[in-house]
Simulated scan of single mutants.
Amino acid sequence: MLTDYSLKMPKTIFAGEHAIEQLKPIINSGIRKIVLFTDKSLLALGLIDLPIQLIEEAGIEYTILSDIPAEPNYHEAQAMVDAFKNEQADFIVAVGGGSVMDVAKLASISATDEYTIKDLLDDPLAAKKHVRSLMIPSTAGTGAEATPNAIVGVPEKDLKIGIVNPEMIADFVLLDGRMIKDLPKPIAAATGVDALCHAIECFTSAKANPISDTFALEALDLIMNHIIEACTNPEALEAKRSMLLGSFYAGVAITASGTTAVHALSYPLGGKYHIAHGVSNAILLTPVMRFNEPAIKELLADAYDRVIHDGDQTLSIDEKSAFMINRLENIVRILEIPTSLKTFRVPEEDLEGLVAAGMEVTRLLVNNKREVTPEDARAIYQQIL
């Protein structure tokens, strides 16, 4: 565990039954023009009607930018940033999942011609915030509303890379269960397991510390005990609110600690095969946890004591650890998320390319409590091919 640690998080967070109504007083503060980032599917489903209504009631000029693809590469992110710059807005509202919020965060630090998104891949700290931002997650979720990270694809490397800069942390976050009420089950499940991965990875990270543990354990408790109901029952608003809060807490844990080999080895799956980020993580969650178990057994037992409310406290550390890994595996199974790359027709001959790309994600691999060698990565990928 780290002996020196810090915490960076959004300045103001509103959560609960009526959180979305806080949008109007926030923007009634001298703002001239808003750019609303979202995606076409949310627009078509009417899931951003309420935020639009509140902006219109406030009488503030706004433009919607919705041509954001899922899992954008840095070229696509740059196109959206350029469109944003043309609007000359002084406030950003992002309503969506991780891709939408990540692009909005990049826009908040890129209202200048001093650098491009490609430049930030090499020097992320070169950027400074130019436009304040407000995040409204429509999934629970990526935790992107809480983090200083923006993930973009790098096609020439068949990889996704995280741009990390504290300047991207949102100024405001609104967590309202109504925004995820009608989310289709496959999306709710994949993004929910992404948040689950954030929580368990941050708690077992080599960079874990008392601050990150506080948020990671609370996130794990909320997510593990509500994810199935939240994803399978459209009317379970209380469970959905718990998931939103858990996802946010897990995002905060990322800023204070960091994810590990699950995320590191999943990045090539999104970068080359465009497998959804949450699904990539779900596929790798159990194999990586079983690989890590010798180094994190006591931590998994501690997590058992916290989050398994009716658990048998007479179990040994080994038994508690095994129970936790089995519970993670069962959640993925019950939510019917694929657990094999065969589903996506990834050929076995791509194995060495996966290993090479996964081993490049040193930013996250260094967080793993058990060292991951190329041979280890190869064995993990072989389990899911």
Rank of each mutant, 00 (worst) to 15 (best):
G278W: 07
P25M: 06
N330S: 07
I228H: 13
K185I: 03
V279I: 15
G141V: 01
L2P: 15
L196I: 07
D123W: 08
L285N: 01
P51N: 10
G358H: 07
A79S: 15
V355M: 04
N281W: 04
D123P: 03
F248S: 12
L365C: 14
A188T: 02
L54M: 05
Y381P: 02
G97A: 04
I20A: 14
V193P: 04
P51V: 06
D213K: 05
A219F: 03
D39N: 10
E229A: 12
S340F: 09
L42D: 12
G353V: 00
A303F: 00
M168H: 02
K33G: 14
D67Q: 11
I48E: 06
V355E: 05
P184N: 14
K240I: 05
Q88M: 14
E218V: 05
E17Q: 13
Y249W: 14
I211G: 03
Y273G: 07
M9R: 12
D90M: 06
L134F: 15
R370W: 13
D176M: 09
H130V: 12
E114H: 13
S247I: 02
D350Q: 15
A79R: 08
A219N: 04
E76F: 07
S41P: 00
K24I: 07
D122Q: 15
M179E: 11
V95K: 01
E319I: 07
I325S: 06
L217Y: 15
L7P: 02
A236M: 10
R345A: 08
D82W: 09
V93G: 09
P155N: 00
T259W: 06
L300D: 00
A379V: 07
T147W: 01
N165K: 06
M135A: 05
M168F: 09
D312K: 06
F291A: 11
L245H: 09
K160G: 10
A357Y: 00
T232F: 08
L65Q: 10
C231A: 14
I337H: 02
Y273L: 00
L364D: 08
L36V: 13
I161A: 07
